[in-house]
């Protein structure tokens, strides 16, 4: 297959890490993206003995006719023994039109026996922060109280659909997208009914599902804990032991080679607030990227060696 993506570039490494992206940005890779994101992860992959190649779902062709399925990337048949796919779905608005094709393609790759960094069901379930918060609020640190509201035609149905008092919440509240790469970005503080309706309606323009949560105040501190193969990084003394223990429990249960857990601290209390499945982002430093990519490489090596339990299909 011939496309305009980088999939046609020469592949030299022992192991190829295909970064599966949606096609919304693949025709023209901007200078900013190349300098602040792509090159950082390319170098990190190189350090882990892998060659990073960004591809889109369009570059994938699958054949099911023999004993084993055949996957081609940009026309070239690829070998599951030397290939891993980075499959953290970027669920930001620009990518939403392609999400169905993205998750079915990652499903195909898994079913065809390829190692992926984020299984399809994790990509769907935990890109929506509500599912994550509901599943893991009893692991030592409570989840932020959260209400999940669909916003299509909210201007018509708001009164019947959602009333703050029904959920034991008071103004001000935070309203933010339920996905958008782990719920990051787009947070809005609503302190009146009118402001809440206004932000609902703006989200409704794109039918974006939102979360409503209590606003904990201006002194709220965010803590992000990176976890590698179920083990939290050393956080020093920035968070108490029970938060690190909670992070450890959650990371082990989810079982991904890499993820970030988010907690917020307000008035001495800690709350579980979100998860990032490892979407490559522009604000990642080289050291962090290198550790993330090395964890993927370790995961791939265990996967390739047939170690039981590495490939997690269970809904967790």
């Amino acid at each position: 297959m011939t496309t305009g993506s980088a999939a046609t570039q020469r592949v030299d490494g022992d192991v190829v890490l295909y970064w599966l992206r949606t096609e919304r940005d693949s025709i023209r890779i901007s200078d900013g993206f190349r300098a602040h994101t792509l090159e950082v992860y390319e170098q990190a992959a190189h350090a882990a003995g892998m060659t990073l190649v960004p591809v889109t779902v369009d570059d994938i062709t699958a054949t099911d006719a023999e004993e084993a399925a055949v996957i081609r990337v940009a026309g070239r048949e690829i070998d599951p023994r030397r290939t891993v796919f980075h499959t953290a779905p970027a669920s930001t608005p620009a990518n939403m039109p392609d999400m169905w094709r993205y998750v079915t393609t990652t499903g195909i790759l898994e079913a065809a026996g390829f190692c992926v960094t984020v299984p399809t069901q994790h990509g769907i379930a935990y890109s929506d922060s509500f599912v994550f918060l509901t599943r893991f609020g009893e692991h030592g640190v409570p989840s932020l109280p959260t209400v999940r509201v669909c916003t299509r035609e909210i201007e018509v149905h708001e009164k019947n659909r959602f009333q703050l008092s029904q959920w034991g919440l008071d103004f001000p509240v935070v309203v933010k997208p339920a996905h958008w790469d782990g719920g990051a970005g787009g947070a809005f503080v609503a302190d009146t009914s009118r402001r809440l309706s206004t932000i609902f309606q703006l989200a409704g323009a794109s039918e974006t599902t939102v979360l409503v949560q209590p606003w904990l105040g201006e002194d709220t501190i965010s803590h992000r804990i990176q976890c590698f193969a179920g083990e939290p990084e050393d956080t020093g003394e920035t968070v108490p032991d029970h938060v690190v223990a909670s992070a450890s429990k959650i990371a082990q249960e989810i079982g991904l080679p890499y993820l970030c857990l988010d907690f917020v601290e307000a008035q001495g209390e800690f709350w579980l607030s979100g998860v990032d499945l490892g979407v490559f982002s522009a604000d990642t430093d080289a050291k962090t990227a290198t550790k993330q990519l090395q964890s993927y490489r370790n995961h791939f090596d265990r996967f390739s060696s047939g170690e039981r339990g590495v490939r997690r299909w269970a809904y967790v």
């Binding site: 609020g137 959260t146 209400v147 669909c150 916003t151 035609e153 034991g168 409503v212």
Partner: peptide, 16 residues
């Protein structure tokens, strides 16, 4: 799906 509101504000999830 728009008719569903799902929340967890009292320590236990509920659906409206």
């Amino acid at each position: 799906v728009d008719d569903l509101v799902i929340g967890s504000t009292g320590g236990k999830p509920s659906v409206h």
